[in-house]
């Protein structure tokens, strides 16, 4: 489903030069699976998620990213979104002046339109968002507010999960969704992912700690250090990392 082949990415710095962050990263997440990427700070986790989602300034210098066998690297971010690629942001934006429900509905319909599907009616939309809001633990009042304005870090992550539940993406990247969350919120994230989990959907869960993986059982765990995957294994690898730390990999990279 998602295949990353020998990906090299250099990110520009302020004086116009670039430094290579991803140095030949290869990874494959088959259909229906959940993979976790763990790694120390500065290993390139966020660069990877931005590159897959198509943020300006995060262009691959070589290698490829394929979704269902097709390269996405030449697509605009919104074209990738329409193909069902979703990124849960590590630091979600506050967007003053944008009413939350209007925005989510506009986004949902933009994706559907790009896929040649009809718009969701206002009534269906409201029914759906109420149901999903309950699942992620956001009350109606929050949905009527400006997007993420004045929300706590935890509420912003709930808003990311609300959108993921609404868009039902084909492939979701969750960039440190667990950071700053308490146990109840972690359980909520687990519930959203487990509800969406299915044979035609994939997840890449980027995290620093093992604890989220208590609620989302990954099919595979990869260690990212120094811009490439240095070790892959089953769920037990996350537990092992929690015990022994990342130092061994920093040395190796």
């Amino acid at each position: 489903m998602l295949k990353i082949e020998d990906l090299h990415v250099a990110v520009g710095n302020k004086d116009g030069g670039g430094s290579e962050i991803l140095k030949g990263l290869s990874l494959e997440v088959p259909k229906g699976e959940v993979h976790a990427i763990m790694g120390p700070n500065g290993s390139g986790k966020s660069t990877l998620s931005y590159t897959i989602a198509g943020r300006d300034g995060y262009e691959a210098t070589s290698g490829d990213v394929l979704l269902d066998g097709q390269s996405v690297l030449d697509l605009d971010p919104d074209e990738r979104a329409a193909k069902g690629l979703f990124l849960s942001f590590q630091h979600p934006m506050e967007i003053p002046g944008v009413q939350t429900m209007n925005f989510i509905r506009t986004a949902l319909n933009a994706q559907r339109k790009a896929r040649g599907e009809g718009e969701v009616s206002a009534a269906d939309f409201i029914r759906l968002i109420r149901e999903k809001a309950k699942l992620v633990g956001l009350d109606d009042a929050k949905l009527k507010r400006q997007f993420n304005v004045g929300f706590s870090g935890g509420e912003k992550k709930r808003m990311e999960m609300l959108q993921m539940a609404m868009f039902e993406p084909h492939f979701a990247i969750m960039d440190e969704t667990d950071s700053g969350l308490d146990i109840d919120a972690l359980k909520m994230v687990g519930a959203v992912v487990n509800e969406l989990r299915g044979p035609d959907r994939g997840f890449l869960v980027i995290t620093h700690y093992q604890r989220l993986l208590d609620y989302i059982k990954p099919d595979a765990v990869h260690v990212l250090a120094g811009g490439r995957i240095v070790k892959s294994g089953g769920p037990e690898l996350a537990v092992e990392l929690e015990k022994s730390g990342y130092d061994q990999f920093i040395e190796a990279a």
Binding site: G54, D76, D78, A107, A110, Q163
Partner: peptide, 13 residues
């Protein structure tokens, strides 16, 4: 960053 966020959600530029 806000522009990228909105485009990731499916809005064209």
């Amino acid at each position: 960053e806000a522009l990228f966020y909105l485009r990731q959600r499916g809005l064209d530029e």
